[in-house]
Amino acid sequence: MIINNLKLIREKKKISQSELAALLEVSRQTINGIEKNKYNASLQLALKIAYYLNTPLEDIFQWQ
């Protein structure tokens, strides 16, 4: 199981879903879906999320 901390980290950094989506060149709905565990981010997208949030990938998506 993967624990998804994207919403928590994004909100801590005061970045909206729309802002993050624009940086990543995806839709806001994609970010929303990832945060609600409706969609799994591809490895490429997960790495981009970590880069733009300046946060280690394993802090955003944790295996349990």
Score class of each variant (00 low, 15 high):
residue 55 T to N: 02
residue 47 L to E: 11
residue 29 Q to F: 08
residue 26 V to F: 02
residue 18 S to V: 11
residue 22 A to R: 14
residue 53 L to F: 07
residue 8 L to K: 15
residue 55 T to D: 02
residue 20 L to H: 00
residue 50 A to F: 04
residue 32 N to Y: 10
residue 18 S to N: 12
residue 62 Q to N: 07
residue 9 I to C: 08
residue 3 I to W: 07
residue 51 Y to Q: 09
residue 15 I to C: 06
residue 7 K to G: 07
residue 26 V to Y: 03
residue 29 Q to H: 14
residue 46 A to S: 07
residue 26 V to A: 02
residue 35 E to I: 04
residue 3 I to V: 14
residue 5 N to K: 07
residue 28 R to V: 15
residue 14 K to I: 04
residue 13 K to W: 07
residue 8 L to G: 10
residue 48 K to A: 08
residue 11 E to A: 09
residue 15 I to W: 05
residue 23 L to R: 09
residue 19 E to L: 07
residue 35 E to M: 03
residue 63 W to F: 10
residue 29 Q to N: 13
residue 18 S to L: 11
residue 37 N to G: 15
residue 6 L to P: 01
residue 6 L to Y: 00
residue 2 I to V: 13
residue 8 L to C: 15
residue 4 N to W: 06
residue 4 N to T: 03
residue 17 Q to W: 03
residue 52 Y to R: 04
residue 55 T to M: 07
residue 60 I to Y: 02
residue 58 E to Y: 13
residue 52 Y to T: 10
residue 16 S to N: 05
residue 35 E to Y: 03
residue 6 L to A: 01
residue 30 T to F: 14
residue 31 I to R: 01
residue 14 K to L: 09
residue 21 A to F: 03
residue 30 T to Y: 15
residue 14 K to P: 02
residue 35 E to Q: 03
residue 5 N to T: 03
residue 27 S to F: 03
residue 30 T to L: 15
residue 43 L to R: 13
residue 51 Y to G: 06
residue 40 N to K: 15
residue 34 I to Y: 02
residue 46 A to M: 14
residue 53 L to W: 03
residue 22 A to Q: 12
residue 28 R to N: 07
residue 28 R to E: 15
residue 32 N to G: 08
residue 51 Y to P: 00
residue 42 S to P: 14
residue 31 I to H: 00
residue 15 I to T: 04
residue 19 E to H: 11
residue 59 D to H: 11
residue 24 L to V: 15
residue 1 M to E: 06
residue 37 N to E: 05
residue 50 A to W: 03
residue 44 Q to K: 14
residue 58 E to H: 13
residue 15 I to S: 00
residue 29 Q to E: 15
residue 24 L to A: 09
residue 17 Q to I: 13
residue 13 K to V: 08
residue 64 Q to T: 11
residue 54 N to V: 06
residue 8 L to D: 13
residue 5 N to Y: 07
residue 19 E to T: 11
residue 55 T to R: 04
residue 49 I to C: 04
residue 24 L to G: 01
residue 48 K to R: 13
residue 18 S to M: 12
residue 8 L to M: 13
residue 14 K to Q: 12
residue 61 F to Q: 01
residue 21 A to W: 04
residue 22 A to T: 12
residue 31 I to W: 01
residue 63 W to G: 05
residue 31 I to K: 01
residue 40 N to W: 10
residue 15 I to L: 12
residue 51 Y to R: 09
residue 14 K to Y: 06
residue 55 T to L: 05
residue 59 D to W: 07
residue 1 M to Q: 10
residue 44 Q to P: 12
residue 31 I to N: 00
residue 50 A to E: 03
residue 43 L to K: 12
